[in-house]
Design a protein around this nucleic acid. Structure first.
Lengths: 224, 224
DNA sequence: AATGTTTATGATAATTTTGTGAAGGAGACT
DNA sequence: AGTCTCCTTCACAAAATTATCATAAACATT
């Protein structure tokens, strides 16, 4: 796991410390803030915050206000710490786009489990994401591929392409679609470059290269 | 919203009815099951279930067991209904990949809010398009055709043609119309080329080739 | 049954698409 | 600057599909 930053916001320093401790123990980088205003500032000034854990009850700007402000800037996942499991509150949260609630008191296990679940959902390298099919294992966070447990060296584009194929197993993918998803949107070069990458990918996958099927006049499809 | 199917699993028929009512009111298609075993069966036998809402406490197979079984087959999002907010249970659920919890008793608003949140997360809607008729299944997204669940190899044009026929089931189609819809508008060749494609298509469809009927002096029609 | 028209079929030609190897070029690293 | 890897492009070969045509069969009408 590499340097995932979590912003922890709570006005009670004891609670904040507690949360931070557990997260640090799990290898996350933690940034702290004592209220909504500070949270917002820290979020803006700190690069690549992957997740925010925020208490609802806070002076100056409460958790919902702060979340709403941050939502204007970013879709960063937010977990809300709440004392009461108030229904109205949860609804309010869903509108803003709160990803998860943790009711106090909570156990460290619950905290970590939810954090990893949210990170997994938002595709941050957090809990490692794996895709497997037909003996090909793709470790997204580590950017690594193994075939029958043997390491395979893939270039960046090759990896991205294989990843896209495997995520869309069984789906016919046009070259245009592949370009739009694997290449940046500002790429306007020749679509045939895909062919070349497919060729290389097939070669590197050995026997399993056959899983990448050509759909004549259409594109490609990954299918075991 | 177009025909999103939700599987509701609860042994208490009153609770099940309640949940279903709210979902139906929101325009979802609901499939019901009374226990984990039935849930699994229904999930397997019903196509394109977009979401499962499941009670934890059930006879035969509880919610976690059922979820674990279903997880072996699919990544369909699962929302768990739980009476007690038991910490251990939630942990167990996260391992299996439960997407959300709703604690009983809950309000319809909470229910709907969570359902929509989960569906939004899983990007339902842009999914797979399917046409079926007389044992011929046409998977548009995968560009794949099966007859009685056996794969059939079709070329691009053949696929497009069959697709057009099946979309216009029971409608007599003139050659001109077929040309304008399946071929590009810039095609000004011989309309008799359709005959050849129809021939090939019929051959590849085997017995079911008869579904493509010739309308003498007019064109063709697909009818089961 | 004969005739003219339309459709089915099989073979062949034309076109399109894909596979492949090689080469140029951009960027990273030494 | 030199080397390296990776990405892209190009040209040609290979493969597959699609179109065309000639002929046979089927159909409708008289």
């Amino acid at each position: 796991m590499e340097d995932i930053k979590i912003l922890v916001v709570d006005d009670e320093s004891r609670m904040r410390k507690l949360v931070c401790d557990y997260l640090v123990k799990r290898g996350y980088i933690v940034v702290e803030a004592a209220d909504g205003e500070e949270a917002f500032d820290k979020f803006v000034s700190t690069k690549d915050i992957a997740l925010i854990i925020m208490d609802v009850m806070m002076p100056k700007m409460d958790g919902y206000e702060a979340s709403a402000e941050i939502r204007k800037l970013s879709k960063v996942p937010i977990i809300m710490l709440t004392a009461k499991s108030d229904e109205k509150d949860e609804l309010k949260g869903f509108e803003i786009g709160i990803d998860e609630y943790i009711t106090k008191p909570f156990s460290p296990k619950i905290l970590v489990a939810r954090v990893e679940a949210v990170l997994r959902r938002s595709n941050v390298g957090g809990g490692q994401e794996m895709i497997e099919a037909g003996g090909i294992k793709l470790d997204v966070s580590a950017h690594k591929v193994t075939i029958d447990d043997k390491d395979i060296e893939l270039s960046f584009k090759e990896f991205e392409l294989l990843n896209y194929f495997m995520v869309n197993q069984g789906v016919a993918l046009s070259r245009e679609k592949i370009l739009n998803n694997v290449w940046n949107y500002d790429y306007f070069g020749d679509a045939r470059t895909i062919d070349t990458h497919v060729k290389k990918l097939r070669a590197k996958l050995g026997d399993k290269g056959d899983y990448i099927k050509t759909i004549w006049g259409m594109g490609y499809k990954f299918e075991v």
